[in-house]
């Protein structure tokens, strides 16, 4: 356990490690909250798609020297609109539309990134490098968290009803499409921020694994979001410690930790755990 002492010493000593810790916590909170809606709406694949689809936006932002969030948001929303369009205007099912659009965007992003090779590091974008987060990135992350919290608090009722019973929401005249695309926009912002800690490829895990863990343990949406955020934060902090200590990429370290929490909940959840269920049956 000497390594924990070293980690804490490091936290006291190094500014970069403090920034990384705070970023991990902020990203953990927002991905737990938005992830809850993603899994309840059956949109895990969509979450994966949007996170991959922001890659060309990241590349373009680097090339043009504009804010990452702007570039990524444009491509994130563009991808969700295209997915919606292909689903509506063709006989294809939604998952096929998602697969086509996100892989194309990701491929485009990959090529654009290699064109801009000198400016950035593809490996860090794909797998995350939370130890390299700058102070200005931290400020951006804090702003995105504020946006997420304001969005969820303001539209809690609408998010709940469109996730739970979309037909009822439509029948009383709620603009369910507006809610869908607003959520996609917020998801894009979360994605770009989470890119720093876990990287593009593993963002979907941050969105769905802690939320799925919480889903097994709770019976109310508000509790689920809080528990998801807590699991997400704990996984992020432990992952950061592992990353610092063993020099692992931060993304895989965080995601594996989250997956271990999920496995424990899956086996031992008092309501839905498979071990407990066996005992009562």
């Amino acid at each position: 356990m000497r390594s924990i002492g070293l980690f804490i010493d490091g936290l006291m000593q190094y500014n970069f490690l403090q920034t990384a810790l705070i970023t991990s916590i902020l990203v953990g909170i927002m991905s737990g909250i938005i992830g809850s809606f993603i899994i309840l709406r059956g949109m895990s694949l969509m979450g994966d798609a949007i996170s991959h689809a922001v890659l060309p936006g990241v590349a373009v932002a680097y090339i043009l020297g504009i804010n990452l969030l702007v570039g990524a948001s444009i491509f994130g929303i563009l991808a969700s609109l295209l997915i919606g369009l292909v689903t509506m205007k063709s006989k294809l099912k939604n998952d096929t539309a998602i697969g086509i659009v996100f892989s194309a965007f990701f491929a485009l992003g990959f090529i654009l990134i290699s064109l801009a090779e000198s400016a950035t590091n593809l490996h860090h974008i794909l797998f995350g490098n939370v130890l390299a987060v700058s102070d200005s990135d931290l400020v951006t992350t804090a702003i995105v968290l504020a946006v997420v919290l304001i969005f969820v608090v303001t539209f809690y009722k609408e998010l709940l009803i469109t996730s739970f019973d979309n037909t009822f929401a439509k029948a009383y005249g709620l603009k369910t499409q507006v809610m869908h695309y607003s959520l996609m926009l917020v998801l894009t912002l979360v994605t770009v921020t989470a890119l720093q800690t876990v990287g593009i490829i593993l963002i979907v895990a941050m969105l769905i694994t802690p939320a799925a863990t919480a889903y097994l343990l709770t019976n109310r949406l508000s509790h689920m979001m809080i528990v998801a955020a807590i699991f997400s934060v704990i996984s992020s902090v432990i992952g950061l410690y592992l990353s610092f200590t063993f020099n692992w990429a931060s993304g895989p370290a965080i995601v594996l930790t989250a997956a271990i929490f999920f496995s424990v909940a899956f086996l031992f959840s008092p309501k839905q755990g498979i071990i407990f269920k066996k005992k009562i049956s």
Binding site: I161, F164, Y215, L221
Partner: peptide
């Protein structure tokens, strides 16, 4: 048509009926 595993209890489900007028 509904997802019955959604994390919501009976009271909160009924209360969504107040949303249209809110």
């Amino acid at each position: 048509a509904l997802d019955l595993t959604f994390p919501i209890n009976v009271f909160d489900t009924v209360m969504t009926g107040t949303y249209p007028n809110l």
